[in-house]
Amino acid sequence: MEEFLVSVFKMAVPLLLCSLGTLFSEKAGTVNIGLEGSMLTGALFGVLGSYWTGSPYIGALIAMTSCVVLSLVFAFFTVTIRANQIVMGVAINTIATGLTISLNRIFLTSASVVKVNGFKSIPIPFLNKIPVIGEVLFDQTVPAYFAYILVFLTWFVYSKTDLGLRIRAVGEYPAACDTVGINVARLRYSTLLYGGIMAGLAGAYISTGQLSAFSEGMISGRGFTAYAAVIFGNFTPLGVFRSCMIFAVGMGLQYRLQAMDTPVSYYFWMMLPYIITIVALCMYRKRSNAPKYSGIPYVKG
């Protein structure tokens, strides 16, 4: 049981980082499926940074910086140029695939780097002694603790601050925001960049935090799952938290069931997270909080 919970939380951390990060830009009306590519890029640069400097933390910073650049390209094309957001997301994913494979071969494979320094867990005294959940929750790495805090932080910014109010308004009715003097383009740019930073961190957590290595295509759809979590979470912080946990349970279950000797083949359990995502999207009928202007570029005047 404990083992299962540990794996669930391991799966939840990158999902939480990425979905909570992208929640703001989604709520502000931009659809970013380039998350997959951002996470992949973050995963590679996290490992590269750790390899170069020996510190996974500097690695994570480099990962986030690389994703800022990628997000800037995405934001420029979708907000300023008003290109189709979904196709642009695919373009970003393709670019990220090419970039990561190339750089991986140039810097890592050719130097036969197998493992780099990863994040070390930092147990929190006393709390980690609580039976069952102690080890699960309080013997974790820094990005994992950050993910917990991020849930609260995102909720706070989303519902209590001026910025949160602007974000909630922009995806709903950009023209109205324009008439009260909000710069719609600037807000969309900044939320996209922020989402990129978080996706970069999530990617670095997957590579440096879980495997201490990079492998090609290692994100395998988790960026899409993070995007689906925002939709299924009805575009609210707590909803996103809930759907991330559901997806994480699905992923944890997958590993658990793979290890167990079930009559159903191991490969079917591999499909489980993807099937859960599809089912979740089909169950999301109410759409009460989905931004009305999602995916539609704003033309001033």
């Binding site: 189709n84 642009m88 373009a91 393709t94 670019i95 090419g98």
Partner: peptide, 19 residues
């Protein structure tokens, strides 16, 4: 794999004609 990079750039340029 730079071919993928190339593909991505092409797609972006084609849909971002307004650039």
């Amino acid at each position: 794999s730079v071919v993928f990079l190339f593909q991505g750039i092409i797609i972006a340029l084609i849909i971002g004609r307004r650039i």
